[in-house]
Design a protein around this nucleic acid. Sequence first.
DNA 1: GGTAATCATGTAAACGTTTACATAAATTAT
DNA 2: ATAATTTATGTAAACGTTTACATGATTACC
Lengths: 332, 332
Amino acid sequence: MATIRDVARLANVSVATVSRVLNGTAKVSDEAKNAVLEATHALGFYLNANARALAQKDSEIIGVLVSEVSDPYFGVMVRSCEEVAHSNEKILLVAQGFHEEKRELRAINSLLSHRCAGLVVHALAVPDKVMAEYMKSFPYMVMINRVLPGFEDRCVNINNFRGMYLTTKTLIENGHRKIAYVNSSHRILDADERCNGYRQALLDHGCEVNENLILKVSPSLEGGTTAAHKLLEHKDEFTAVACYNDALAAALMAVFADKGIKVPEQISVIGFDNLFLSSCLNPPLTTVTNPVDIMGKYATLLSLALYNHQEFKLPEFETKLIWRKSVRDLEK
Amino acid sequence: MATIRDVARLANVSVATVSRVLNGTAKVSDEAKNAVLEATHALGFYLNANARALAQKDSEIIGVLVSEVSDPYFGVMVRSCEEVAHSNEKILLVAQGFHEEKRELRAINSLLSHRCAGLVVHALAVPDKVMAEYMKSFPYMVMINRVLPGFEDRCVNINNFRGMYLTTKTLIENGHRKIAYVNSSHRILDADERCNGYRQALLDHGCEVNENLILKVSPSLEGGTTAAHKLLEHKDEFTAVACYNDALAAALMAVFADKGIKVPEQISVIGFDNLFLSSCLNPPLTTVTNPVDIMGKYATLLSLALYNHQEFKLPEFETKLIWRKSVRDLEK
DNA sequence: GGTAATCATGTAAACGTTTACATAAATTAT
DNA sequence: ATAATTTATGTAAACGTTTACATGATTACC
């Protein structure tokens, strides 16, 4: 592959001039500029980003770690990160952690190696203590969907408690008093927070908490299928079910439909996240927005700002109810 | 940030020894090795991947360009690419093209700058001529979902014609003779191939092609909604509708459900791709698999192999019918 | 017309690694 | 005991850029 020296030779100028033309960092005569551009084109030359990063001590790369890109939730998040990166002339380095500590650690280390000019990390499995070390050493590192004590201002997340309190309260306000809950089995703060929101809403409205109706499954379609079957063993003990996320709700509804159980006539279902698929379900899923796109955006902006030693204040991330058709008003 | 020199100084060895310990490229005495590891840890040192890539003329990065990561289709693809990357000790650089020529070009150039050790490109908008230049200059570049004449062995794709022929034939075999088609409006080979498959299946079975029933919309939920409304203006002219992809089918079904039109009793719907959401729809969507995960995997493997001047033969990528419940057998 | 300021360009050091080659010490063979 | 081999380590050049500094040419000023 051609180097800047080859270009310089062909254009009959010095390497500095070539660099200046290519980066627009200083004025160059039109004559020289044209010669350089011509030579660049003739040789099919592309600046070597590695050499440049080395010389400039600054890379064009922003690093992102997520659990799994194919999960629509993270898909949306990565998309937002990439858009911010793009408008800042950067490009995304993406790693997946798959909820495994080893993968997450390897990913973080790899991203650090690449001297990213920004780092957004969604890591569930790495212990707080280790994360704290990283956060201390790399002050531009930003966490998403996890709150690390002492680093709250670099943690981007929603109020999960409030969000799930809201969905549960919605069910209660529609006359439901016996409400099941399908939780995520991941060891992750979200899960506890949401479950607590559910419990608190029940308590605040004088509803009984029935531990038989609280399930823990993998927060995926498969998990939802399992949960649906288990839940049906207690069919008469509830009129509604709140879910940790939309994927679970979708799987639940699919099983119910298959068994001839009508949603919402017989069982009401409420989700969490407002994934794009939720509106296509039949009936369309009532759920709560999880503004992951906005979070991805601000996490990236924050990290970039910190990297450049600039001030940046995170906004509040709001959840709000999306009323569709999967919840029945029992009082009508 | 600490450099290898700092480590060498602290460990009282030469930089070469440090490099050897960190890379395991040559035997080092236990004494020296421990000193190095200790120093590395004490300084919180991470090898600079840019400097290494420069010195080794070989990066740890694999580049991928897709339209949009949040599209579940590409999410699955990127996930596969990342897995291959990961098991080859590499990491993914991801760019999005959004079907825009300018973005696609910028993305490709940026990936090339980074001297990726593998390059998988899904670019719709860049003209054949330009793509051919790239493919010629970078013999490890692999295309996905597009066939470029002269570079067939570096183009990973399914037989779209056959796939859509299959879905249409399925409808016909179930007694449908008046079949609508919702196509993608993107200027992309897939779209034409699939549409031709649909047309040919009709012709081969003596069904009439009704141009009123062939729609072109953006292949998204929004597009599907538009299409559904347009199609309903010709409600009595068809009994089934084949769709360019599952997202369109899902949106169609949502509109039908909203209007009280029963699928499959009144209208049968068939999709394409077998996205994860398809099985959650109500009724579950009959569709055809599009093995995008396998394609992502082999595209990445191929590119890596080519980069390393190794032989690699692509397999055939099969589509197959997934029979669910969105198609009614009119003959029963 | 002489000095000062500006401008375009070039030279060379630096960025942080890897690695070919050199060297000294330790081991083995004779 | 000496020579030959092996082993562990160090030295320094290379990778392809950017950029501080130097330089000579041009322009501006009084």
